[in-house]
Design a protein around this nucleic acid. Structure first.
Lengths: 338, 338
DNA sequence: CGGCCGATGCAAAACGTTTTGTACTGTGGT
DNA sequence: ACCACAGTACAAAACGTTTTGCATCGGCCG
């Protein structure tokens, strides 16, 4: 038989009645806002324990105008990158007694809209938003109504709103520098079609590093493809067919790098002896490929934690008044593919 | 400058005042519970649009005793298996206007306890729980208080509570049968230390399939190790050092299988020519190994969806009174490692 | 002995909804 | 001309908290 018994939660009224005091007194025992005699306190506590009373957070939130909840809106919970953000967020918010509401939007603007709206009506205390939409009405609405908002990822930016992201330009730089110090000289870059956003910024850094090192920058070595495993494979195949093929390939993404590895293997090349391959993100699969992928970590966990700290600061008012922009220094994770 | 402006949401009172009617009328316009004249309706709707009013879900939940929220409590959001469950849950609950609250507990009983407690005080309408604790006080408490509960995964079971899980015994069977039809004859099994739960059930199925096929069952070929990549490698090494080494190895887990592949490669063996390796779960990395891993899919996405449907049924009362036990038929995913 | 003060506890308001009971229109039927 | 009734709108209660204003009661000090 399934559980039935019409839902009946014990309320502060029940406790008060059972203890023979007013609900005010029970509340005071719980909050310590005003003194309550030792005897009464003991009695109340005992009844609370007996009945297993726990305050209703809905009523509490309604009265307090604070729910101890923050929302995390992400494109896809199935992409390993985002659970790490969620994890980081929870790491810092959990101990502060704040729950995280996660919602996945499939990067569909309409769904993003609805999700943020939902969160506002649920009166979340804060909102962390990772989306592809550069200009987001609802997010702005949330900010305007006084809910602290943190934008995640380099794609979006908006004056007056906090941002947490990886420093993609620096990432492109250090990856390229790493390859240069390992004596690679013809370095290619596989990136996405968009001219803005993280992938584009990484190319920017790449180009800058080449210039710094006095190496030539050849447009032919930057290939734009769909960001996916297959896309990576196609791009790699194209690079390998060049008269002067690259000796190292930087990919905007670990998944893309995976495709590049496929293509290299398919062409009978050894990695990294014949051609080096390097990725971005350092998601778990990066360590599982053969050879294990050298990549750039952008530390999603830490990004999540920073977001949490930022939000926490906004909530208790300890954060500075101006909008923050926290950029994470990327780091090369050296494995065997480069 | 950061967003400020003390949080001020527009409430039904504001709408009523602005439209020159009572809040009752506004509510009726919104709900259609009672007729409202066309003129009034139009006026109210216009004001609602102007002010951008959206009902406060906290107040609504308090009054309605229903929050349109269900909780998903999982051990680790970072494990790719669980986001898929979350995704499935959201797939069916989202269209019904129900939000999913995800919380990760690290499989720590104390944290699990606190999380479930939190969810109860937030008056979630339903609870999906995936944990390692077989007997869970709080979960029982939730069920007793009338909150529909679904237990996920084969580890936990409790009379009167719905369960959604993979059919692990069947999984062990079909995996073994698959190997047998592929002409493997000495089949080993790498599993965990526990004598109960999913891993144990899979061994049960394995054993049964061997008996059915008239093949001998050798205790030496079932090795118990830590369930992890390293554990899998250690177990594999031990198996390979046997006088009569197996020609196929079944692993309780894709991650474990990964370790087995490591060990096989380390021993200079080709997979699957020298030894076949097969996993369980079909998480994404299974397709990324070399060779790609043949494994058993237990369809976490569908499990999540089934959980959602079950919960939905409990909420609208359309589900049968007795506790349900939904077992998912596992399916062999044929790739190249076996 | 009177007044004051600290200690203790209660009543009531407020948060923002939904729902129920009621009151006030006209209008149509008898 | 009266009654019933449909249509329309409002007031008030309830959901479960927290907080503020008051009231009561001793005890202490002068």
């Amino acid at each position: 038989m399934a559980q039935q018994g019409r839902r009946r939660h014990v309320s502060i009224t029940d406790v008060a009645a059972q203890a023979g005091v007013s609900i005010t007194t029970v509340s005071h025992v719980l909050s310590g806002q005003r003194p309550v005699s030792a005897a009464t306190t003991a009695k109340v506590r005992q009844v609370i324990a007996e009945l297993g009373y726990e305050p209703n957070q809905l009523a509490r939130g309604l009265r307090l105008q604070r729910t101890n909840t923050v929302a995390l809106v992400i494109p896809d919970i199935t992409n390993p990158f985002y659970p790490l953000i969620a994890r980081g967020l929870q790491n810092v918010l959990g101990p502060a007694g704040i729950q995280v509401l996660v919602t996945s939007t499939d990067a569909d603007p309409a769904v993003e809209d609805a999700a943020v709206q939902q969160m506002i009506t649920r009166r979340v205390d804060g909102l962390a938003f990772a989306g592809y939409q550069a200009d987001h009405r609802r997010v702005a609405a949330a900010a305007e109504v006084g809910i602290p908002v943190v934008l995640l990822g380099g794609r979006t930016t908006r004056p007056g709103i906090d941002v947490v992201s990886a420093d993609d330009v620096a990432g492109g730089e250090i990856a390229t520098e790493y390859l240069i110090t390992r004596a690679y000289r013809r370095i290619a870059f596989i990136t996405g079609a968009d001219r803005v956003g993280s992938p584009a910024n990484r190319v920017l850094g790449h180009r800058h590093a080449l210039r710094e090192a006095g190496l030539p920058y050849s447009a032919r070595l930057v290939v734009r493809e769909e960001i996916s495993r297959d896309g990576g494979a196609r791009a790699m195949a194209r690079l390998l067919s060049l008269r002067q093929a690259p000796d190292a390939v930087l990919c905007t993404n670990d998944v893309t790098a995976l495709g590049a590895l496929d293509a290299a293997k398919g062409a009978g090349l050894r990695v990294p002896q014949d051609v080096a391959v390097m990725g971005f993100d350092d998601i778990e699969i990066a360590s599982l490929t053969t050879p294990p992928l050298t990549t750039v970590s952008i530390r999603p966990l830490e990004q999540g934690e920073a977001t949490g700290r930022l939000l926490l600061g906004r909530l208790d008012g300890s954060a500075p008044r101006e909008a923050q922009r926290i950029l994470f220094d990327p780091a090369v994770v050296r494995r065997e593919s480069a």
